[in-house]
Simulated scan of single mutants.
Amino acid sequence: MKKLLASTTAGLAVLTVAVPTPALAVGSRPHTYVVSREPGVLPEGIAVDRDGTLYVSSVGTGAVYRGHVRNRELRPFLPSGADGRTRAAGLDVDRKGRLFVAGWDTGALFVHAPDGELLARRTGPGAALNDVALTADAVYLTDSATGTVWRATLNGPEVGNLVRWLTAADFPVAPGFLNGIVVTDGGRIALVADQGSGQPGTERLWRVDLVERTATAVEVVDGQMGADGLLLEGDRLYGVVNFPDGAGGWAFAVNLAMLDADRRTARVVRQSRPADLSQSPTTVVRDAGRLLWVNSQLNAPTPAPPFTVTQVPGLR
């Protein structure tokens, strides 16, 4: 879920830093995917499994759409309102093909089998569950309403209850709006984006020790990573950020930051070409040698179908 965030990085230059590109063929994949042609969908989260199945959530209705990276059109997979899922934000897929859906202000985590069967519904009281990250034995979710990181244990087919793993009081500064989350270092460390209050300098990237249950601020250099969706590939961290466009509006882009080995410093080295408010991208995912982002239209003056996913311009 996007929060507009003022920042001083609107004029960030594209730097000529050598960054490895994944050696994967894009093949005959469309540049644009149509999630839905129905009004009010407002797509938000995205996930791609190992077989190329593409999932996109709707924060407007709670529906989840499914397709394949080689096909332009997605189809309804989980209908709006089913299982109490009237909102759907962040998504993730595990190695068993189970789909984990953050239910935003429903306060619920939904876990579905590949055929759509509801396997588990777990609730965090008062939560606005925004984004999801999986480890071998747990699922972690950010809560934008209360500044909490929630955790549920995964034990084979069993999904445990949601537990407050870190609360706002466990951060050096109370988070303003927790959003994207990724996990690294064998499931020990999470990087969590905080979009702050919307004022310059309040956005942060947190390094969360999931074992010690502590949080410290990552030193972010040459840009900001107070992002909506995050994507981590080795020491490369991608984040969908927003900033004033210099003309009284807002622009959106993907920033690429290089992390140090201990995940305590992040240097922004590249930025995609921007999108405008009518597009309002939320999060990013890797498909072969390209990046895809979700055009939510959440901040568009008049959101209108078709709702789409497109390739991130100018960055791989």
Rank of each mutant, 00 (worst) to 15 (best):
P274H: 11
K2S: 13
R50V: 07
G126I: 10
A217V: 14
D276F: 10
V163D: 13
L277Y: 00
V41R: 01
A257N: 04
G314M: 07
G84Q: 07
P76M: 03
T283I: 05
T308R: 11
Q311V: 15
A288H: 06
A10F: 07
L134K: 10
S144D: 15
S144Y: 10
V220L: 08
L256I: 06
T9C: 15
P306Y: 06
D115Q: 09
A10L: 09
D276V: 05
D209S: 10
P157E: 07
R273H: 10
D235W: 11
V17R: 02
L15W: 11
V163M: 07
R66V: 08
V312P: 05
S58K: 10
L134G: 03
P306W: 05
L15Q: 15
A304P: 01
T302V: 14
P20G: 08
W293S: 03
E203N: 13
G223D: 12
N179I: 02
A25Y: 01
S57M: 08
A18P: 00
R263M: 10
Y238S: 00
A23S: 13
D194S: 11
G97R: 02
V111F: 05
N242L: 03
Y33E: 00
V17P: 01
S28Y: 04
R164N: 14
T86H: 14
T308I: 08
G81T: 06
V101T: 02
Y55K: 05
L74F: 00
V41F: 01
N71V: 12
A88C: 03
V111G: 05
G126A: 08
R207A: 09
E212V: 13
R236D: 14
A251S: 15
T167E: 12
V182W: 02
K96N: 10
V69N: 04
V211A: 15
V93M: 03
V221L: 14
Q271S: 12
L205I: 15
L298G: 02
T21M: 09
S57C: 03
V192C: 06
V182L: 07
L154N: 03
D137N: 14
A10M: 08
R121S: 03
R264N: 07
A190F: 10
L256V: 06
T167M: 06
A120I: 08
A133P: 10
L74E: 04
A82Y: 13
W165L: 14
V56T: 03
V309L: 05
